[in-house]
């Protein structure tokens, strides 16, 4: 519950260049506070997701899009993978396995792919984006297990896909970042597939809404405290905050963050996820792991994914691309 005092909490202001984008987001039908009953209409206005379909994004770039239907988790339906390959592929290319965002409740595998097209074209990367089942119709563990199953299939078919399995990273934004972190934990605990890195863009990691930042952003910005509760309630069922839940669904609750591949974590200073994301990086370091953390001043949730040439957006995109290049030795 939000108290009167919470609303009065001081909070970092938004970057002035990002403010108009925030206002545009609100006008495009993205309210700060998303509640359970808003999920259905939001899915409808988003048609096949909020981003244009992958074909439209690719346009005349030398990139080939193929779809594969592959086995889901044991006893669960098959899943669809979108595979983006350079028109002139390498024999064994570095690859990104992508988990889309949308608060666990909306979106599809096309969302967020646009941000990787330059890299695919420039460095002949292969990108695999997974269509996972959404909550609340499909609560935990459906989303994270779908994502894991897709990763297993991708690694097993590396040869066929022209992927170098030693240069495969997982990445996603928002809920997709949380799922990427969860799949990384699963891969560690189940003995594979091997991952060379985890790209966690403003990841959704903690279901408890207990940090300072989770109380600072209520009723403003993108994905506020209420939206966060809606997403986690849909995934885990009400009352999850005080229950034991799977650490693969809620990576922030994992006690053991040892033996993880290098992480890239970025987040805005002006969003709900700020403190849980900073904490995740700190705990990876405490466990002897490698993490690169960027907290972008005045960034609202997802600012770095929206495109646009605001100075802070350009820096944020540049930092993520730079990390990908270093991690995959591009």
């Amino acid at each position: 519950m939000t108290t009167v005092e919470d609303r009065a909490l001081p909070r970092p202001p938004y970057d002035p260049e990002l403010l108009p984008m925030l206002e545009a987001a609100a006008q495009q039908g993205l309210p700060s506070s998303i509640t359970l009953e808003m999920i259905a209409p939001m899915r409808e206005t988003g048609n096949d997701g909020w981003a244009p379909p992958i074909e439209e994004l690719i346009a005349d770039r030398p990139i080939v899009h193929t779809e594969r239907t592959v086995p889901g988790p044991a006893g669960a339906p098959d899943i669809i993978l979108s595979i983006l390959t350079p028109a002139e592929p390498l024999a064994a290319a570095p690859a990104i396995y992508h988990t889309h965002g949308g608060g666990m409740i909306i979106g599809n595998r096309h969302d967020g792919v646009a941000g990787f097209l330059d890299l695919i074209e420039q460095h002949k990367l292969v990108l695999v984006s997974v269509e996972y089942r959404l909550a609340p119709e499909h609560p935990d563990p459906a989303p994270v297990e779908d994502c894991y199953a897709g990763l297993v299939w991708t690694a097993e078919h590396a040869d066929e896909l022209g992927i170098d399995p030693s240069r495969l990273i997982i990445g996603g934004a928002s809920a997709g970042g949380g799922l990427a972190a969860g799949v990384t934990l699963l891969a560690r605990d189940r003995g594979g597939p091997a991952l060379a890195g985890q790209l966690l863009l403003c990841p959704m990691l903690d279901d408890r809404n207990i940090t300072v930042s989770s109380r600072q952003y209520q009723g403003i910005g993108v994905w506020d405290r209420t939206s966060n509760k809606t997403g986690w309630d849909a995934l885990l069922g009400e009352g999850h905050e005080s229950r034991d839940v799977s650490v693969y669904a809620v990576p922030a609750r994992a006690d053991d963050l040892r033996n993880l591949p290098p992480a890239f974590i970025d987040v805005g200073s002006a969003e709900v996820f700020r403190d849980e994301d900073v904490d995740y990086a700190s705990r990876i370091w405490a466990a002897g792991g490698q993490a690169e953390l960027h907290v972008w001043a005045g960034g609202f949730h997802g600012f770095q994914l929206m495109g646009g040439q605001a100075a802070v957006s350009v820096s944020a995109r540049g930092a993520a691309e730079d990390w990908i290049r270093r991690t995959l030795s591009l």
Partner: peptide, 24 residues
């Protein structure tokens, strides 16, 4: 959220686009 990617990049030439430019 990344769902907005593309939508904001490609402001379509409608009346709404002009209002958005002014507001921006």
């Amino acid at each position: 959220m990344q769902e907005l990617l593309g939508r904001l990049q490609t402001l379509d030439p409608q009346a709404g686009a002009e209002l958005r430019i002014v507001a921006h």
